[in-house]
Simulated assay, not measured.
Amino acid sequence: MIRQSKKGAALIREVAQTEVPYGTLAIWFIGQESVIIKGDGITVYVDPYVSDFLEKQHGAVRTYPAPITPEDIAGADLCLITHEHADHMDEGTLPLFHAQNREALILAPACCKEPLLGMGIAENKIGEAENRRREFFGKLAVTAVPAAHEQLDTDAEGKHRYTGYLIELNGVKLYHAGDTVIFPELIDLLSEARPDVALLPINGGDYFRRESGLVGNMNYREAAELAVRIGAETVIPLHYDVFAANSEKPGYFVDYLYERYPEQKVHVMARGERFVYVSERAFLRE
């Protein structure tokens, strides 16, 4: 049985106690594509994968323990799920997330609804992430962005199975890509949105990983080029270190940007790190 950890509880206290001035966002990196985002008193979890369920059920061993456990999670206002894969929609985390954050909505693609209900999530706390629809949760605006986890898959009703999210909070626009490769529609949509911060997977994909059942994403070169093309001020790599068989070196990503686009801001987050993004809007005065 997973128990609340001292280290994890300390991180959650840090989230609760962090005050984020206008024009800034606080981001905590939890591993894989799991992040916590806070701004203007609102705390958002994206793809919280912090349990050992996947290891117990499928033998998928993490290269390092998650910085928090499911029991640690408290104070959440919203949870965004990008797709149904178990390292994103974690059956070991979400039931406890729901039990400990009863008012928090879980927003996910339509195909995730039945599995979430099967985890014991209340139906009125499951929202559908409809691509390109902008939704408001108090001062927070969330737009679901199409994602192609190698391809633009749809369910039986023609709704996208994979999504990313454009988050507008506290005067900052953040894009979390989820799992995706690059396709023309994505470039056009993000070029128009011009996010301040882009969180992009860099693990790539290849024949041998696909042969093992691992679906691919953009690689580090593509992620770097995408960040520059869409005008993201700061880019943060994700999805590169939790599973040894599906990893990449973030240093390659940094080197590529430094050699070709030395003015592009990039930040590689340490495990459990709090990174505070500061935009130029933080210094504007009325």
Rank of each mutant, 00 (worst) to 15 (best):
F283L: 15
R13S: 13
S279P: 10
D90V: 11
R210D: 07
L200S: 11
R13C: 04
I202Q: 09
G8Y: 05
I30F: 12
V276K: 05
E71T: 05
D90K: 06
I187S: 06
Y49D: 10
H267A: 15
N217H: 06
Y256F: 15
G171V: 09
D155A: 05
E233A: 12
E280Q: 12
H98Y: 03
A108F: 09
F183V: 12
E273A: 09
T154D: 08
A282V: 07
V181S: 10
D87R: 07
N170K: 00
Y258H: 13
V181F: 00
A86N: 09
P67K: 08
L189Y: 06
R285W: 05
A129E: 10
L78W: 02
P109D: 07
E192M: 06
A245V: 14
E168Q: 09
G118E: 05
P146Y: 09
R194T: 03
Q57R: 14
L186G: 02
D40V: 02
T82A: 09
A156Y: 05
F137I: 06
G120Y: 02
G205Q: 02
Y22A: 04
G204D: 07
A198G: 09
I187L: 13
Y258A: 15
T43V: 14
G231E: 08
Y64H: 14
G164Y: 03
L94C: 06
I27E: 00
I27P: 01
E150Y: 12
A244D: 14
T43R: 00
Q17N: 15
G138F: 02
E168K: 04
D196M: 03
T18H: 03
C79M: 13
E157H: 11
L54T: 12
A66E: 06
R161K: 15
L166N: 07
D255V: 08
V46L: 10
V15K: 01
L257F: 09
D206Q: 01
E185A: 14
H176Q: 14
R102I: 11
A10D: 13
E71S: 11
N101G: 10
R221M: 13
E273N: 04
I81D: 02
I236A: 04
N131T: 15
V50M: 05
G75K: 02
N170Q: 02
H88A: 14
T69P: 04
R132V: 04
A26C: 07
G138N: 08
P262S: 12
N124K: 08
V172Y: 00
A10M: 10
A60C: 12
S34N: 09
A99Q: 13
A129N: 10
P201E: 09
A104K: 05
A156Q: 11
E71K: 08
I202G: 10
K265F: 02
V61D: 06
D241Q: 13
V276T: 15
D255P: 03
M119F: 13
Q100C: 01
V254P: 04
A108E: 07
S34T: 13
R210V: 02
K56V: 14
L140Q: 04
